[in-house]
């Protein structure tokens, strides 16, 4: 129950932060990616603020054995730089540039801009399903 509350609170703070930062506006995100046009540096300040807090959190994490409300840390162990990583990130970036949306702002907009957010989120879920179907055939 406590862990569910942590998930919920983290989600609420994340969504509120996204809205405050301006990142729920696709035109602003697109503006950051428009480096040859009317560049909008706001996203860099968002990343700076978020990474500042997370760098402190990682420094604290390294000094602890386990998280406050779970038995252990579950952290990505793989260090592999492979075709999956590069092609996946490339595809993600193309979609990000096309729509001005990444998963966080798209989901957080479901309550405020239902129609466009739902079109994007439904398509994103279909994409994830397609990946799963392909991935299970590969293995």
């Amino acid at each position: 129950m406590k862990r569910h509350m942590i998930g919920l609170v983290s989600g609420v703070v994340f969504g509120f932060g996204l809205a405050l930062s301006g990142m729920m506006n696709p035109a602003r995100v697109r503006g950051f990616l428009d480096i040859f046009g009317h560049w909008d540096p706001t996203l860099a300040f968002v990343m700076g603020g978020a990474m500042l807090i997370m760098a402190l959190a990682w420094a604290f994490q390294r000094r602890t054995i386990k998280p406050a409300c779970a038995e252990e840390y579950h952290l990505p162990g793989t260090k592999r730089i492979d075709a999956r990583l590069l092609i996946g990130a490339g595809l993600f970036g193309a979609g990000w540039g096309l729509g001005g949306l990444c998963p966080g702002p798209a989901i957080a907009s479901l309550g405020t801009q239902f129609v466009p957010a739902a079109i994007f989120c439904a398509s994103m879920l279909v994409g994830m399903l397609l990946f799963r179907a392909w991935d299970s055939r590969m293995s």
């Binding site: 595809l91 990000w96 729509g99 994007f120 398509s123 994103m124 994409g127 397609l130």
Partner: peptide, 8 residues
């Protein structure tokens, strides 16, 4: 856009 974000 959503499709390639999902796959990617």
């Amino acid at each position: 856009a959503g499709l390639v974000v999902g796959i990617g």
